[in-house]
Amino acid sequence: MKHYEVEILDAKTREKLCFLDKVEPHATIAEIKNLFTKTHPQWYPARQSLRLDPKGKSLKDEDVLQKLPVGTTATLYFRDLGAQISWVTVFLTEYAGPLFIYLLFYFRVPFIYGHKYDFTSSRHTVVHLACICHSFHYIKRLLETLFVHRFSHGTMPLRNIFKNCTYYWGFAAWMAYYINHPLYTPPTYGAQQVKLALAIFVICQLGNFSIHMALRDLRPAGSKTRKIPYPTKNPFTWLFLLVSCPNYTYEVGSWIGFAIMTQCLPVALFSLVGFTQMTIWAKGKHRSYLKEFRDYPPLRMPIIPFLL
């Protein structure tokens, strides 16, 4: 059985960083990364991007050496992705923050609204209902991160945790300040508006959870398998008939419901920014589905049925 020789060059300087002799033909890129780490321990596998061309796409960890368009002496180019952190850690951090930050404003801890309001309670029912909904949303997200989601990528750049936390924590503080303010004004149409908004919120939260469970069942634990998601017997998953990412559709719907319930401008802005970002993600995933699966359902749109 022939063996391969693998040289790894710096993608920027073309400097030879490592030479691997007698590499098995069936070795994966993940195994080559581990061998590279032995000579350069500062670059652990998650930091490494190996590619066939200095400006090309990163090879997948599961790619097999003998199936790549290389000879028995293969040249790979290395790029440092920077310090990495696990997706689970990032999600837990960015979701735990809003949960606790919101509660600080809800309980009106000292130095927020003035001494005479310390630890007082709002007289408006919608304020307490909003706290329950907000807390439920982020507790749900935390539990899904721990027990439901299966991540195709193990890590992301460390800098992302600061960007994500600034976004989630900042908006949580902004909306919580106004919703729990002693001078907060309840919704214009009173109980009817709150009940309608609560119904929207609850339905969308159930829908979002149902989609996450359906997506989880598509991917076996520990794998990166991708399949076309289809509706199940659960009615909340029937939205798969019309959109590629109904989890985002339901998520946006939840925040629209919360915005109607609280009639709070920061919540509306958070919903708008979230919708914009999720639309970008949904379009990317939709394109990926179309590219990977020739039999992908043609009627589906990325996030909004028939429109977007």
Rank of each mutant, 00 (worst) to 15 (best):
Q205L: 08
K12A: 13
H40K: 03
A83L: 02
V273Y: 09
T166C: 15
H115I: 01
D217A: 14
D10Y: 04
L215H: 15
L81R: 09
T75P: 10
P187Q: 01
V127L: 06
F240V: 13
M261F: 13
H286G: 01
K163S: 15
V126S: 14
H181M: 02
L68F: 15
L50Y: 02
A214G: 14
F111T: 00
Q192P: 06
T166I: 11
P298G: 14
C133K: 00
T125S: 10
W255N: 15
C165H: 15
K285D: 13
G207V: 01
T120I: 13
T125D: 13
K16N: 06
K2V: 10
C264R: 07
L206F: 13
D118N: 10
T145I: 13
F151Y: 09
Y177N: 04
K38A: 14
F236H: 03
I303Y: 01
W169F: 00
L103V: 08
P220S: 09
C133A: 04
E251R: 15
K55R: 09
G170T: 07
M278A: 13
C165L: 12
Y230L: 12
K285M: 07
I256C: 05
R287H: 08
I256G: 00
I260K: 11
T166H: 15
R14L: 12
C133G: 08
E62R: 01
G82V: 07
F171N: 14
K283T: 05
H212F: 05
M278V: 12
V252M: 09
T145R: 02
S135N: 02
H128I: 13
V23K: 06
L242F: 07
V252I: 15
G97D: 00
T120Y: 12
H40V: 01
K16M: 02
W169R: 03
S86G: 09
K16L: 06
K16D: 06
I211Y: 12
P266T: 08
D118V: 08
V194E: 12
K67E: 12
C165T: 15
I200R: 01
K55P: 12
F119T: 10
H124C: 04
L20G: 06
V243E: 12
C245I: 15
R150W: 06
Q66G: 10
G82M: 15
A268T: 09
S210R: 03
E31A: 11
Y95K: 15
M301Q: 03
G222R: 12
H40Y: 08
T145W: 02
T145S: 11
G154S: 07
G190T: 13
H212P: 04
E94W: 01
F78D: 06
N34V: 00
L35F: 10
E62K: 12
Y95M: 03
L265H: 09
Y184V: 00
I132M: 06
A176V: 02
H115N: 03
N164W: 04
H153N: 03
V267Q: 00
A173I: 07
R108G: 07
S135L: 07
T28L: 04
C133F: 09
K291G: 00
A191C: 15
A199I: 14
F78G: 00
K33I: 08
V126A: 08
L146H: 14
G207C: 02
L183F: 10
V23Y: 00
S254H: 10
L242E: 15
P110S: 09
T73E: 13
K22S: 07
D53V: 07
G56Y: 07
I132V: 12
L65Q: 06
M261R: 01
W43H: 01
Y102A: 01
K291T: 08
N208I: 00
